[in-house]
């Protein structure tokens, strides 16, 4: 079943077209890599899917529900985005970063949120960083916290913007594994990357934006 369907998406900035009639369909458990030159609109695509940009025309259908020009409120949590610079909340600890969206947006009780967060921290090998602040973490650890925070709210689609650009080869392998596992659990995954070989290795399909 396709979780995400993009039909003839057009997006321009100040009259300058960036995405032109872009279409894409992704099923549960599928990994799609998006490649393309710098400035071609890869990040913009992810931002459109996550409601951070208004689209000019076309449609984005998430879980069979159409996202028109503006993001509907209850669709936001169906799709998660891991930003290139992660955007962790600096004033909160690792575990608070993960708990906050659960408590604030999903209205889950704090006790349950803690259980969910601890499980994720263990899965992502962050259990000893629970009480650290983002500035105390390495780049790889920060990324894993961002991943934990995004998947805690249980989205069906997970978007990664340049997940490997700041990582050394060992960490690339680690995030490779994490992404694969997410796909195995049925998440639809979109990875924007410069690293064509990484894209080809990890993805079921590689799509180039031209």
């Amino acid at each position: 079943m396709s979780v995400l369907e993009i039909n003839k998406l057009n997006k321009s900035f100040k009259g300058k077209p960036v995405l032109k009639n872009f279409s894409l369909k992704i099923d549960e458990g599928e990994i799609v890599a998006i490649i393309g030159q710098s400035g071609i609109g890869k990040s913009t695509l992810l931002r459109c899917i996550n409601g951070l940009e208004k689209i000019d025309s076309g449609e984005i259908i998430i879980c069979n529900r159409c996202l028109k020009r503006k993001m509907q409120k209850d669709l936001k949590l169906e799709s998660g985005l891991i930003f290139q610079d992660y955007n962790l909340f600096p004033q909160y600890t690792v575990i608070q970063n993960i708990i906050l969206p659960l408590v604030v947006a999903k209205k889950i009780k704090k006790k349950e949120a803690v259980i969910i967060a601890k499980e994720l921290l263990e899965e992502l090998k962050l259990e000893d960083k629970e009480l650290s602040y983002p500035y105390e973490l390495s780049g790889g650890e920060r990324q894993r916290v961002a991943i934990a925070r995004a998947i805690a709210v249980n989205p069906k689609i997970i978007c990664f913007d340049e997940p490997t650009s700041a990582l050394d080869p060992k960490l690339v392998k680690q995030v490779f594994k994490i992404i694969k596992e997410l796909a195995n659990k049925g998440k639809a995954i979109i990875i924007v990357t410069h690293d064509i070989s990484f894209g080809e290795k990890i993805a079921d399909r590689v799509i180039e934006i031209k």
Partner: peptide, 10 residues
Amino acid sequence: GQWEVAYTLE
């Protein structure tokens, strides 16, 4: 980015 990430987390 802090506004944006909070927005995507609803």
